[in-house]
Simulated scan of single mutants.
Amino acid sequence: MQKIILGGLAAVALSLSLPAAASAAGFVNGNFETGTFANWETGGGSWYGGSYPTPGNYYPGSGPVSITNAGFDSLTDNKLRTVYSGDHSARVNDSYSNYSVATIRQQVDGYSDNLIAFAYAAVLQDSHGVSDSDAFIISLDDLTTGLNLLTVNVNSAATPSSFTRSSQGWYYTDWTTISFDVAGAGLLGHDFMLSLLANDCPYGAHAGYAYLDGFGGVLPPVSGAVPEPATWAMMIIGFAGVGGAIRSNRRKTLALAAA
């Protein structure tokens, strides 16, 4: 398992059509333990090439999303757990290569927890190039300031060494946890949008999907034994700090990679 703690930001403004806000100042059903997508908005569609899919472009819409039970993913030689914590997680997209894009998102107004934390794992069926492969993308946006706080792009074409290859020819990551320091960045009380998207390649040749779990104000506890960590890499674009970013409006790029 990998653990990432972040305090940087990215000034990547997104144009979003927003769903209704959650009823409390925190993620509701963030661990999917209700066994449903209650309080999450689901979207999706198809991708046949061109600009890379972004979550805001797939609402309204529908894509293959599901709630999983605890177990192991058969396409990873039963080494990747389907749930990070508890009894359920979300699965975004599926294993069928049919141009599909699936996404979920939740808006929270007046966020009051010190952290925004969650866990994810990606399963991909190989790649073409960086700009036309199956992938998994997480976006965290501060709707109060219009800043993109975090973008995670998991793409086996860009970082092939970050995946473990199964005997079925699928590539997968271990569960990775991310914790964004809301209080340290001076963003308490702001409105946030968390969006998660997984897409097939645009040629109908390769599928990609992701497991998501434990969104909330604390890192989720691990349920049971976790498989040995896979080597991984991800790209995070961000500012070194909120205050300086807002005052100077100068963009910086932070690239993180770990093995």
Rank of each mutant, 00 (worst) to 15 (best):
Q107V: 06
T54G: 13
A210Q: 05
Q2N: 12
G45F: 00
A119D: 12
N93F: 04
D109W: 02
A257T: 13
I5V: 11
D87N: 12
G44S: 11
I137D: 15
S166D: 06
L140K: 05
V226N: 06
V154D: 10
D200M: 02
S161T: 12
G61T: 02
D113G: 04
Y211G: 14
A233Q: 10
A119W: 00
V152F: 05
R165S: 10
Y58T: 13
G208P: 11
A183W: 03
A38Y: 02
M234E: 06
H206N: 14
N39Y: 01
G44F: 06
A13N: 14
Y203V: 05
N57R: 15
D126Q: 07
Y203A: 12
L115N: 15
L18P: 07
M1F: 04
I236T: 09
K79F: 02
T151I: 10
S112Q: 01
D141I: 10
G244P: 06
N249M: 14
N153L: 10
D126W: 05
E228A: 15
D94M: 04
G184D: 03
D109M: 01
N57E: 14
R81G: 07
S133P: 12
L194I: 00
D142V: 09
Y52A: 14
H88L: 12
R91A: 11
N29T: 08
G217H: 00
R81Q: 09
A259P: 09
Y96F: 11
M235H: 12
G43E: 09
D77H: 10
S167K: 03
V101H: 03
S85M: 02
N78Q: 13
N69S: 15
H88Q: 13
G8I: 09
Y111P: 06
N153V: 12
S85N: 03
W170Y: 06
A21V: 01
P160M: 08
S51Q: 14
G35P: 09
V218Y: 05
D213V: 04
G208S: 07
Q168I: 00
G43C: 08
V28Q: 05
A205Y: 08
R251W: 08
V83F: 07
S15P: 11
V154Y: 04
Y209S: 12
Y211R: 13
S161K: 11
A121G: 13
T68G: 12
M235C: 09
A13P: 15
D174C: 11
Q106E: 02
A117M: 01
Y96D: 08
A20H: 01
A183G: 08
R91P: 04
N114V: 14
R250F: 12
A20E: 04
I137Q: 13
F118Q: 08
I246M: 15
G216T: 02
S97T: 14
Y120A: 11
T231P: 11
G244T: 07
F180P: 07
S85V: 00
G7W: 03
W175P: 06
I104A: 15
L140W: 04
I138Y: 08
A13S: 15
A10E: 08
F27C: 00
F32W: 10
I116D: 12
W47Q: 09
D174P: 03
R247V: 14
T36L: 09
G217K: 00
P55A: 14
K3Q: 14
D141A: 13
D132A: 10
A257V: 05
G241K: 09
S95T: 12
R165V: 07
L143A: 07
S195W: 01
Y96G: 08
Y48H: 07
S127C: 14
